[in-house]
Each structure stands twice: as C-alpha cells, then as structure tokens.
Simulated scan of single mutants.
Amino acid sequence: MRKQKIVRTAEQQLLLDQLKNVAEGLGQTLAPFCEVVVHDLLDPAHAIAAIHNKLSGRDVGGPATELGLARIGDAAYPAIVANYANSFADGRQAKSTSIGVKDSSGQYVAALCINVDLTMFHGLQAMFGQFSRIGAGTAPQESLDPAGADGIRRRIDDYAARLSSTPRTLKAGERRALIEELREAGCLEVRRAMEIIAQHLGISRATVYSYAK
C-alpha cells in the first residue's frame, strides 16, 4: 500500500525542517547518552521524521507515541512535558522531555523529544558513592538479599564503580569476575537473571551464559 501524501503548508514544512536542524545539533552535542527525536504530528502513522543516537532502536518512519497522539487530538495539551520517567524496550531506565511545536493557527505540527539513558549516570552515581564512602571497619557493606532485578542492577553498578568504570564499558575478564560475584551472591537464581544482566551490560544473553559456565 502506498503511503498517503501529507499536505503541509509552507509554514508547517519550515517548522519541521528547522526542528530537524535543532535535533541534529542536540544529538551531536548530547551523544551518546541522549536520543533526540523529531515527530511529524501531521503524519502519525509515520511520525518519526528524524532520530539521532538511536537508543530506543526505532527508525525514521516509525509511528507516533501515545504522547504524540494526545497532542494531535488536543491543541490545549501542554507544550512542554519535562523530565518524566520512561524506559527503553530493553528495560533501561530513561527520563524524557517532549516539546510540542504549533503553527500560527495553533495546531500542533511537530514535537521534539529527548530521551536520556540513565544507565550511565547510575553507574557514575555508584562510582562517586564508592569514592566518597567512609567506613570505620574493613568489612564490606552489602545486602544478602538480591531483591530481584533492581538488586542485580545495583550490584552490577557497584561492581563497575569499584573498577572506576560503568557496566557497559567493563572488559570481558571483568564481566566474567562479575558473573562469579553475582553467582556467589545468589543473584543468578533470580527469575530472568541472565536477561537482566545482559541488558544492563549491553551484551547478549548467550555471552552471559558463556561467562556463567
């Protein structure tokens, strides 16, 4: 089926083109931890007009999000929705900001969306926490309860911080040692543990299983 031709005014096309330029500049500046997307709200079935730093795995031509559809249906919808909790398809936590753009008639024609991957920042937070930690004794402070997926992710962040690294920049040998540490802590017994570990490290489940052998 041929894509239906979308008719835009000269003003609407200019706004969309200028927004693409803004997105490209932001994408270059905020790489690699920030995805920047331009949504064409006049073509909701193929709304993604530009995408930079594709953290979500989406492509140009993808459909509008629920927020985009809400804007299309309501000209009174807030122009700026900032710093709301979001997540990528693989479970990584994100925070997002969406900025709607109207033409001179008051119709929403486009939106600029910024999706920040918080994984790296959580790793840095753990690293700084490790650096500034002061203890009276030499015994490590830890919890014996893996506490599910969040517990596994925290343990991975803490491990990476001890190496002055982040989960996704760990070397193969460091990842093997991490898996052994998680095994000793009982984390591999948690439901979907291998999938959770793979997603947080940015590697395949097959690789995690090979480390666990």
Rank of each mutant, 00 (worst) to 15 (best):
K3V: 14
Q4N: 06
T9V: 02
T9Y: 06
A10E: 11
A10P: 03
E11R: 12
L15A: 02
L15V: 07
L15F: 10
D17S: 11
L19D: 01
L19T: 08
V22R: 09
V22D: 00
L26I: 08
G27I: 13
F33W: 08
V38C: 02
L42M: 11
A45D: 11
A45E: 12
A45K: 13
I48Q: 03
I48C: 01
I51H: 08
H52K: 12
K54C: 04
L55A: 02
G57F: 14
R58M: 06
R58D: 00
D59H: 13
G62E: 07
A64V: 03
T65Y: 07
G68Q: 06
A76H: 10
A79C: 00
A82K: 15
N86H: 15
N86A: 15
S87L: 09
S87F: 15
D90W: 13
G91Y: 13
G91K: 10
K95C: 10
K95D: 01
K102W: 08
D103Q: 07
S105T: 15
S105P: 00
Y108H: 08
Y108P: 01
I114R: 04
D117R: 05
H122R: 12
G123R: 05
F128I: 14
Q130P: 00
F131G: 03
G135Q: 15
G137H: 15
T138Q: 05
L144W: 11
A147V: 08
A149D: 03
I156V: 14
A160C: 05
A160P: 02
T166Y: 04
R175I: 09
R176K: 14
A177K: 11
L178V: 04
A185W: 07
G186Y: 09
I196H: 02
A206N: 09
A206G: 12
